[in-house]
Write a protein that binds this DNA or RNA. Sequence first.
DNA 1: GTCTATACTTTGATAGAC
DNA 2: GTCTATCAAAGTATAGAC
Lengths: 217, 217
Amino acid sequence: MLSRMESEPVIGRRGAHAKGVARRQEILDRAIEVFRERGADGTSLRRIAEAIGVSHAALLHYFDSREQLLVAVYAHAEAQRAAADAARRAEGAPLPLRGVDSMADAAVKNVEVPGLVQLYSTLVAAALESSSEVSREFFSARFERVRSELTTSFRVQQEDGSIRDDVPAEHLAALVVAASDGLQIQWLLEPSVELEGTLRSIATLLQPQPGPDPRRS
Amino acid sequence: MLSRMESEPVIGRRGAHAKGVARRQEILDRAIEVFRERGADGTSLRRIAEAIGVSHAALLHYFDSREQLLVAVYAHAEAQRAAADAARRAEGAPLPLRGVDSMADAAVKNVEVPGLVQLYSTLVAAALESSSEVSREFFSARFERVRSELTTSFRVQQEDGSIRDDVPAEHLAALVVAASDGLQIQWLLEPSVELEGTLRSIATLLQPQPGPDPRRS
DNA sequence: GTCTATACTTTGATAGAC
DNA sequence: GTCTATCAAAGTATAGAC
């Protein structure tokens, strides 16, 4: 029941032998930098290995496949962000945002690092192919977790009357996740779309509604 | 100003020489079937060529690259759907849907052919990479066109009072596109999310609002 | 356990024959 | 216009050095 990150689930296989795990994390840290800088562009196993300073076979010693490495990189980047957020809050920073605002904030931060959004899109697309189990399992679980957290948050807000309750919380959760993902892509392709403004407009759409108008026929 | 499809823009290079164009369309028709059946799974140039009955080099005679072929396939599939819709309407079928309903309808039809959604996701992800100009140009233009059409539709509806007008039509358009794209992916990964119901919930969110409540403090 | 060297296979792409 | 041959790059797998 610790509020602390419960030691970030290891995506790869071997390890659990302290030393190996440490080296693994080191590789992930460096790989993340590669993606941050160059995006998912020329990120073959050999290029990543070269940037890290090892042979490509060495990477496969820690990860079963290129796909598994990529998923691990994304998961690691996400965990880093979560840890940073937690640390910031621990220092007395603003309270955890709820519902829509948390997504809007995360989205804005995401597009500052296009390489990671690129990686995310690539892996989600891969998850739809029957060949890539690793991606599918990771993103199925991730979507379910995020939707579930948002649903809970929305349900609470519906009960205390801070948002409308004439639309199921589950629908709102799925919609907000979809909108956030989709808008980040649209923004990367055409920065004239107002990412933050559009996401904040969702808050307006969610404002509490008056009961059904009795004057209506 | 014809309402008819203006001869579907040719994505490839050569052609314009009648004969070549015909063969081209033939290849695209067959390639679409491959994607409909097997999705974007094992769709290397050689596999597609094999399914069609030619060598992979033959495909590259009509398309500069694999990416260009894939974009052409997607564009062709979309044009086919648009043509079918137009034909259906010409037979006195229901009038063109507006705004949200048109997107919801399209989304539901899309997920019936997972292979095409897969192809779409793959190409959108590719469009984010600086290496693939073809995808980026196609999808940048596509997003802009769809957003623009939706914006116009929403603006009209705002003026005649059928939807709320306290959120910019541009925001609504971008949101609906994003929600539709994102939900299709979520549904493919977890069919328990209610694709159609969730998309229709957007209509509820867009219902006209009463003016600001004067009783409020 | 960690890593290099190396080889195998598939793939996108090009060149040249017919 | 289409095929065969060929290439370079990439993912993957294995053997063996340390």
